[in-house]
Design a protein around this nucleic acid. Structure first.
Lengths: 346, 346
DNA sequence: ATGAAAGCGCTAACAG
DNA sequence: CTGTTAGCGCTTTCAT
C-alpha cells in the first residue's frame, strides 16, 4: 500500500503542501473551509505525517533511549513504569535497549541511539554499576553524553560530570542494619552480590559501619558473596546453616530481594521458621517482596520515583534548563513479616 | 555540539558524499587509500550517519513497535526478552509502548508507530484479549495492519485475518484440570479473572469440559471471578474458605500465577497447608511461580518462545515471505510443590 | 573508482 | 490566508 504524503493531500485539496502542514501543526491560521476540506481528506486517507521527515528537519525525535541490563528483572520494569508515566504526557516514545549487562551491547546501543537521533538517554545497569569501570568504557559514555542529554540511574561513573538520579543505597543498608540491631540482633550475616559491583560495596560498607557503631563484631564468615540471584540466596543460606563451627546468625541482610527470597526458601526447607528462628531483610522492595509468605521486610528504593526523576532531569537537560547534577531518592525501610524482635533465650 | 554530517566528512576528505556513503555501506568498491582516509575521519569525528535521513530514503527503519498492556507484569518482560533475543541480531530496535490496557492509549500508539514508520508491530494485551471486541477497535487494528506488518501475541480479533502467535491456553487449562482429577481431586474450584476476557473464558470452558468428561460436577459456587491480581486471589480464597455451606474444595485452579500466589497466602494465613490440605495450580509460570514456597505448580506458556515466534512471523511478513496465519505454542504443565495426590479420608 | 544531482516527506521562511 | 522554495542528511542512478 503506497504511503500517502502531504503532497497527495495537498493536490487533492487543491492547495499547497504548506497549507496542509499548517493545519497539521496548527502553526498558522487557515481558512475554516480549507481546513475542514483538508481534515476530511486526512481522515479519509488515514494520513499520518511521516515523523522521520519531520524529525530530520526539526532535529528532535520525541524519542528517549532507555538502556537497561535486564528487563526481566522486576526492578527495571518498575523504573520504566516511572519513566513512562512521567514522559508520555510530554509526548515521548521509548527505545527499550536491553543489554543483558553486556558492555559490548551497551556500546552498540549508545551508537544506535545516536544514529537514531534520540532526544535523550537514560542509562541503567552494566558498566555504571561497577566499583571500578575501565576508562574506555567511561569515555564512551562521556562522549555520547557530550552530544545527547543523558542521565544515569542508580549508578555512577566517578570522575565524570554526568547527571545522575540514584537511591541512597548506603543509607538504606544502614537503616536496615540499625533496625535489626534495635530488634536485638547481634549476630547478623550479610548475603551479598558480586564484590566488583558498587551496589554490593556500598551496602556492605554501610552494614559494617553500623555494626561497628553498635559495638558488634562482624566475623569474616558472616560476609557471603553471590550473584544477586535467587539460587545464590538459596546456596548461601544453606552454607550458613551448615556451618557448625558457630551458632547460626539470628538475622540476615540480603543485597536484594531475589537473594532474600532464595534465602528464605532454603531456610524454610531446613526447618527454620522465618521470622521466629531468623529474621531476613531484603533490598529494593520489588513486587515479589510482598507476594511471598512470609512477606518480606525490605528496603524500598522507590523505583518508580527513580524513573520519574530521571525523566525530570533529562527533560530539563533537553530543554537546556539548569538542573542539579545529582538527585538522591530516599530509601524507606518497609517492615513486614520476615523480621522480628529477638527474644533472648538464655 | 554541531552534528557532523556526511558532507563534513566528504569535504574534509576531499571526496564527494557519494564516496563516503559508499564506504559507510560497503555498497561499491572504493580505492583502499580513499577508504582508509575516510575511515580515519569518521573515527576522528565520531561520525554516526543520521538514521532518520537514511530511513526516510530507504523506507525502512529497523524498528519494531511492541505494544504491551503492562510492562510491570512479569509476563510481558518475558515475552519481550524472547522478542529481543530473536530480533536484535537482525538489527532491530524496539519501541516499547506500554498502554496500561487503556484502549485509547492503544489507538494513540498505533498512530504513533505509523508516523514513526516502524517496520512492524507486535501487539499484546488490551483489546485483543476481549471476549468481544467493539468493531471500531477491531477496525483500527485491521487498518494499521493493512499498512504495517503486525502480529498479535496471545490474543485474537475474531473475524479478522491478522497473524497470530498464541499459547494454547485452553489446552493448558485442560491439562491442569485433568492432572488434578488424576490426583484424585473431585471438588475443584476455579479462581478466574474478568469474565469479559477471552483468556478467562477459554480456561473456564476447558475446565468445565474436562470436569464434565470425568463425570465431575462443578457447582456454581466453585467458579469465582476476580481481576487477575494477587489481592483478588487472596480475597477469593478467603471467600472459598468462609463458605460454611459445603466442605472446602481439595484443589483450586487459578487463572494465572498472581492469583494463585494470593490464594496460597490466604490459605496459609488461614492455617491451611499447601499442598497437604489443598492443591493449587497457577497459570503462565512466571518466575514468581518458582520463587515462592511452596513452589507453584503451573501451566508454563513459554513466554519467551511466544516472543521469538512472533518475531519470526513478523520478520517473514516484513520480508514479504509466506507465513502461516496462526502459530500455536504448546503449553506444558510444570508440577512443583503446591499440588499433591489426594488421600481420601473416609 | 568517483562525482553530480535528484529526491525521500516535511517545515519554515519569504513573498504575495 | 496561501503558495513557492530551500533545505534536513542520506542513498542512488547516471555519467564520467
Amino acid at each position: 500500500m503506497k504511503q500517502v504524503t502531504i503532497y497527495d493531500i495537498a493536490s487533492e485539496a487543491g492547495v499547497s503542501v504548506a497549507t496542509v502542514s499548517r493545519v497539521l501543526n496548527n502553526t498558522a491560521p487557515v481558512k475554516a473551509s480549507t481546513r475542514s476540506k483538508i481534515m476530511k481528506l486526512i481522515k479519509q486517507h488515514q494520513f499520518q505525517p511521516n515523523a522521520l521527515a519531520r524529525s530530520l528537519l526539526k532535529k528532535e525525535t520525541g524519542t528517549i533511549g532507555v538502556i537497561v541490563p535486564d528487563i526481566t528483572n522486576p526492578f527495571f520494569p518498575e523504573v520504566f513504569g516511572g519513566i513512562d508515566s512521567a514522559a508520555r504526557d510530554k509526548g515521548f516514545t521509548f527505545f527499550l535497549c536491553d543489554t543483558l549487562g553486556d558492555y559490548d551491547r551497551e556500546s552498540q546501543y549508545l551508537d544506535i541511539l545516536r544514529k537514531k537521533q534520540v532526544d535523550g538517554i537514560i542509562f541503567m545497569g552494566g558498566r555504571i554499576n561497577l566499583a571500578k569501570c575501565p576508562t574506555e568504557l567511561v569515555e564512551e559514555v562521556v562522549e555520547t553524553a557530550a552530544r545527547i542529554p543523558m542521565v544515569l540511574v542508580n549508578g555512577n561513573l566517578p570522575g565524570t560530570e554526568l547527571h545522575r538520579v540514584a537511591a541512597d543505597e548506603s543509607k538504606g543498608a544502614a537503616m536496615a542494619t540499625q533496625y535489626l540491631v534495635e530488634q536485638g540482633h547481634r549476630d547478623i550475616a550479610f548475603i551479598g552480590g558480586h564484590d566488583y559491583t558498587s551496589t554490593n560495596a556500598q551496602k556492605l560498607r554501610a552494614f559494617k559501619r553500623v555494626m561497628n557503631q553498635n559495638g558488634l563484631p562482624v566475623a569474616k564468615e558472616r560476609i557471603l558473596y553471590g550473584d544477586f540471584t535467587m539460587s545464590a540466596g538459596e546456596r548461601l543460606m544453606k552454607e550458613i546453616l551448615q556451618d557448625s563451627s558457630r551458632p547460626r546468625p539470628t538475622a540476615v541482610l540480603c543485597v536484594n530481594d531475589f537473594t532474600a527470597v532464595g534465602a528464605i526458601k532454603a531456610a524454610i526447607r531446613a526447618g527454620i521458621f522465618i521470622p521466629d528462628d531468623m529474621s531476613i531483610v531484603g533490598f529494593d522492595d520489588i513486587p515479589l517482596a510482598s507476594a511471598i509468605y512470609p512477606e518480606l521486610t525490605s528496603v524500598k528504593l522507590h523505583m518508580d520515583q527513580l524513573g520519574r526523576n530521571a525523566v525530570d532531569v533529562l527533560h530539563k537537560l533537553i530543554m537546556k534548563e539548569k538542573v542539579k547534577r545529582m538527585t538522591i531518592i530516599e530509601p524507606e525501610l518497609v517492615v513486614r513479616d520476615s523480621t522480628k524482635k529477638l527474644i533472648h533465650r538464655e
